[in-house]
Design a binder for these strands. Structure first.
Lengths: 223, 223
DNA sequence: CTTGAAATAATTTGATCATATTTTGGCAGC
DNA sequence: GCTGCCAAAATATGATCAAATTATTTCAAG
């Protein structure tokens, strides 16, 4: 059961194509709020900023708009969508429909080792909140949910949820920018307890509450 | 002012770019099963078949893979994904989580005029089933659900559902190719009755049943 | 003379293509 | 079965054309 040492010391990490690199970089920047919602971006501006040709940039943007992370503004601009009350409600419904199901499945499959890893992430998350470190809070919070969802072994549902995070991530950053990391309650402890006892229903219940709290934060911050 | 014709007859309000046209054409072909799942497609093959450069084709494919309608096969091929039991289950869960919610909202907003239109679609659907017209059945069935979802006025949820249809559409065609249009039960009549009386709960219940029946058809046909 | 709006020029941006480069799968030869 | 070569496919760049936005000019009215 010990980790096999791979006979591939080849430090050659698969060379990813430029459009993939551009996609990942922009996706992470959007996810963690480095683009202000509504702030326009141009294709040619990105080609200069990233130092690649326009074809990879175009493909990455096409992908991100297909995922709802970016939006064409009719005129000649692309931007992170600005959420209105309707969008927040829809995102909330979708998250409550999908993430508790993933938490349930994760609970069935979680090993003690998995729980330890998630507890560690949650501790770093709490530390970031105490420090008032918004950026780190956003990263660790995402890590917590992404690691949890991965346990569910449900790639299609997980992908759908990832898309939802791309949509509300930028606004979460805006809200934290206004109010700092104070008053950011979550139900991670309940989720972790449910995982530890492999109680799927309790995990799903806790996750409904966590999602509801998180989306309510965004709603109050933006409306 | 010589030869200035400022009167634009608005006959051609928007000229869609090639990448958009390619995307729509491929999306519809996938949705209605014109590509066999697993059958490989190459970029250059499509550029020749469609008579456009490779840039628009690349962008359209990037979009479709981002939506899960196509999939990279590791080797050098792109294809419509082949669904396994796990994928069918996940798609079933996602549909049951989202489409009943859309049906509920549609019921609240449906006018008698809307119901008449949906009844007409459903009649054409039944006629296609009696005739054994698989292609027409697929189109009308999609129309029914798409029109219904549009009534809900929930663009984000609707977009998520559209993606799901792109994933199981090709396999629905395969199943119909095997068994024809016999034994294709649905609960559209129950849905329509609920819409007519603006009963959201009844509409949601009927839609859960409709989705369950539809996905069960696919499961039995493919496994 | 100033101001404001309409028309026009200039710049920027997006879309597409042709072409060069890189990578990969297949296959001949051993 | 393995290795190295070849062809084909994918990736990426820069150029070109078209469209739109911005800046500038012009003209007329107060």
């Amino acid at each position: 059961m010990a980790g096999q040492i791979s006979l591939k010391p080849m430090a050659e990490p698969v060379r990813l194509p430029a459009h993939e690199l551009v996609y990942r970089q922009l996706r992470d920047q959007i996810l963690f709020g480095e683009f202000e919602p509504g702030q326009p971006v141009t294709i040619q501006g990105l080609t200069e900023a990233l130092g690649v040709g326009m074809t990879p940039v175009r493909e990455a943007l096409r992908r991100l708009t297909a995922e709802g992370a970016l939006e064409f503004l009719g005129n000649r601009r692309i931007a992170v969508p600005v959420l209105d009350a309707q969008a927040i409600e829809e995102l909330s419904i979708a998250r409550k429909a999908l993430e508790p199901e993933l938490a349930r499945r994760a609970a069935y499959r979680a090993t003690p080792h998995d729980v330890v890893r998630l507890v560690e992430i949650d501790q770093r998350l709490d530390a970031a909140i105490r420090r008032g470190d918004v950026q780190r809070y956003l990263v660790e919070n995402h890590s917590f949910h992404a690691d949890l969802n991965a346990l569910a072994q449900a790639p299609i549902l997980t992908e759908m949820v990832d898309r939802l995070w791309l949509r509300f991530g930028p606004s979460l950053r805006v809200v934290c920018g206004q109010f700092g990391t104070r008053n950011l309650p979550d139900r991670h402890k309940d989720v972790l307890a449910a995982l530890g006892s492999n109680d799927g229903e309790a995990a799903a219940d806790a996750m409904v509450g966590d999602v509801a709290q998180g989306m309510e934060q965004i709603r109050q911050g933006l409306i």
